[in-house]
């Protein structure tokens, strides 16, 4: 059976949540396969990330290089090519770093690439069977990857349960020498610009009235702000509303926006993509209003209303106003 490697993201010396999920993803591929964490970076932050990874994984490979103080996909790629054995399965999280690194890495390893996998169905001969989603989660597909030359997989964050025990005691092996020197870079990291805080800080809101593309027109925003006012809610949104410049970026909920922890989250005209849901934490009471009764958001919500928001929200507002007198 192929060896499995898991690429560990870390920040400020702490392993990312996905580090705890990839071990369970690996077990779903083959519970018998040896699994090794690969942790790249530099200095003491790298060392503490490695110690944490050693509690989750039976083996940890460390790549320590000053050039990786800020990990640039183009810098770490040739190092991984130098150390990952031919035919191995390499798991990465499907987020902005994994999406940057994995496709090109699969070419350089001459391996198959399975992007954004949500589940595995195991190995059959020299085929790795997995499940993906298409069309924003509206349909799923079974996919088969040829394992003979190895496979690079990006795994959807949150799709596998985290390893709660973290009771391993893996050995940390320094692979920096084998990984080789940093390449001359054709892409150079300059700086990270931190997002501005907007007029409302939705990360602190208790009630969020959140709108998506279903609002259809900028003029209809009024409906939502009016309702939010009578409810005492703040207004947040999905990404297309920010892309259209109808609301400021600081109101966007999701993996590339804000992480919110309200008590109540009301999703109006939002389909329920994993990038959007990834920004909702703390198990709030979720209400979804969507005109498509099959919208994936209804799988994530506690209570659903199949309705046109442009008609439903004003009626809800009227009823609340009556109640408040």
């Amino acid at each position: 059976m192929a060896e499995i490697f898991a690429y560990i993201l870390h920040k400020d010396g702490k392993a990312d949540d996905t580090a705890y999920e990839l071990i369970n993803a690996a077990a779903k591929i083959d519970p018998e396969a040896p699994v090794t964490a690969v942790v790249a970076g530099s200095g003491s932050e790298l060392d503490s990330a490695c110690s944490e990874a050693a509690k989750i994984y039976p083996a940890v490979w460390k790549i320590d290089n000053e050039a990786l103080a800020y990990v640039n996909a183009e810098a770490v790629r040739p190092m991984l090519v130098n150390i990952i054995p031919k035919g191995a399965v390499l798991l990465l999280p499907h987020e902005h770093f994994g999406m940057d690194l994995a496709p090109g890495l699969s070419i350089k390893l001459d391996a198959a690439y399975l992007p954004d996998v949500v589940d595995f169905e195991g190995v059959e001969g020299s085929t790795l069977n997995a499940i993906r989603e298409e069309f924003s989660g509206m349909v799923s597909t079974h996919v088969a990857a040829d394992l003979s030359g190895g496979v690079v997989v990006t795994v959807r964050p949150g799709a596998f349960a985290p390893d709660e025990d973290a009771a391993a005691s893996g050995e940390v092996v320094d692979k920096s020498g084998d990984a080789g020197a940093a390449p001359a870079l054709m892409r150079r990291y300059l700086e990270t610009l931190v997002a501005e805080v907007g007029e409302v800080d939705i990360t602190k809101s208790e009630i969020l009235l959140s709108i998506g593309r279903g609002i259809e027109d900028e003029e209809n925003l009024e409906i939502v702000f009016d309702l939010a006012k009578v409810m005492g809610a703040d207004v947040s949104c999905s990404r297309p509303i920010v892309d259209a410049k109808w609301l400021e970026k600081s109101r966007q909920v999701g993996t590339s926006g804000q992480t919110v922890k309200p008590k109540v989250y009301i999703a109006c005209g939002i389909s329920g993509s994993f990038q959007h849901l990834g920004g909702i934490k703390g198990s709030p009471f979720i209400v979804a209003v969507n005109k498509n009764p099959k919208a994936p958001i209804f799988q994530a919500a506690d209570v659903g209303v199949a309705a046109d928001i442009l008609e439903f929200l004003p009626e809800l507002q009227e009823a609340i106003e009556e109640l408040k007198g």
Partner: peptide
């Protein structure tokens, strides 16, 4: 090296309690 074998609709979990009736 990667083949899509089929399309399917996954078995849905319980999902939301849908509110029914008049508006």
């Amino acid at each position: 090296k990667v083949k899509r074998l089929d399309y399917f609709v996954p078995e849905l979990g319980e999902g939301a309690e849908m509110l029914e009736g008049s508006t």
